[in-house]
Design a protein around this nucleic acid. Structure first.
Lengths: 204, 204
DNA sequence: TGTACATCAGTGAACGCGCGTTCACTGATGTAC
DNA sequence: TGTACATCAGTGAACGCGCGTTCACTGATGTAC
């Protein structure tokens, strides 16, 4: 890793923490450069303005989340061949991961950005949208494989069901933040798991 | 209504719209007073500082949400005596209400505040927390009445299930905002409804 | 009914601080010949 | 191997604008006697 990517990463780390704590607008460049131990102009060497920082943060977050889902559900698929059971294992692992974070998951950059989107240019907003559409597609295709084996016990829109994973994660993290209860998000994911278990359980 | 409450309400209306669009910090007092057609000092006659505006906005939003839930679920109870079916009717009505809003629900003040909580004093954060705990209690007691009649088909934490209503609303609104699809929140509520239907369906 | 005073619902100008951004510059490292 | 030049990864000082907040004031309405 070059020196360049080192400093850049440090800026992004510091900025992400600050933005999750108090929002993008309320996070000053002064504060970021203090945390990253560079000068104000050092920041502008790496990012041409604050909007470009937002885009970079969001891109990095989305990549990390995608990598996490890839690893988690391919690991789950190794543990069980059945599409339903490997999905349930994956969600359990996701819930445990969230619960294991001592001070709770830092929260989701998506939600923080969504509620301040007018501050950003269209590129940042589209990034956000494309990420969620990507997760819809990912989970929808998993649910289709499950539905091929287990006929759903209720008539559901598979796109909406794909979105439900993102929705439950986002909603759970908002709750966790507002309640200051570190297991809120993890419990909501376990309820989503319970729903899928019932929805795809074989008819008796 | 006195002139005082008129102007105050107008300030809150303008502020709420602006905050939902771009966040609290990015909403300037200049912009609020322009929308409410008063002078900057007129604002400070009604609110001693920006933090007091945040508290008032949140209080008003929570009251409105509580009134909405009261009306909706008591209307649903009139339509069907059975606790499960009246719950399902109430959720359907909630989903329809969200779908009927032409430009989508304005979004949730709770989430916007939760992701900027370090900006506010403890009173504002506690208000947020108490509101969600109130909704937990409200829905938990409804689920208890249902569980008395229909034995749940899965072992669920009733507090978490009570939270799930808030979580699905919040998560759905985040999605709706990010996706720019006006029916996202409403569809997520219909999935929650589907879950409750399966969870409390009589064993065959 | 008249007068005196108090409160309400603001106005308008000013202040100072912090913010994002710019600009001229610099020392260390890399590359061409 | 030496020299010249280019690029990289920043520094430090300055700028101007917008922000939240204050303060002295004001005209309209309400209340006491």
């Amino acid at each position: 890793m070059t020196k360049k990517t080192n400093t850049r990463t440090k800026i992004l780390d510091v900025a992400e923490n600050a933005v999750l704590e108090k929002g993008f607008e309320a996070t000053s460049i002064d504060e970021i450069v203090a945390g990253a131990q560079i000068s104000r102009s050092g920041f502008f060497y790496h990012f041409k303005d604050k909007n470009e920082l937002a885009r970079a943060m969001l891109e990095r977050y989305i990549d990390a989340e995608n990598t996490l889902y890839d690893e988690l559900f391919s690991r789950a698929a190794e543990l069980n061949d059945d599409p339903l059971h490997s999905m349930l294992i994956g969600l359990k692992m996701l819930a445990e991961m969230l619960a294991d974070m001592p001070d709770g998951h830092p929260g989701c950059v998506i939600a923080a950005t969504a509620y301040q989107d007018r501050l950003f240019d269209k590129g940042v907003q589209d990034l956000n949208r494309e990420a969620i559409l990507g997760w819809r597609k990912r989970f929808r295709s998993m649910f289709e494989k499950i539905a091929d084996v287990y006929e759903p016990r209720d008539d559901v829109n598979l796109d909406a069901l794909g979105d439900m994973v993102s929705s439950v994660v986002e909603g759970g993290l908002v709750l966790q933040r507002a309640l200051r209860e570190n297991n809120a998000a993890s419990e909501q994911i376990m309820l989503l798991r319970s729903y899928l278990k019932l929805l795809f359980s074989p008819k008796s």
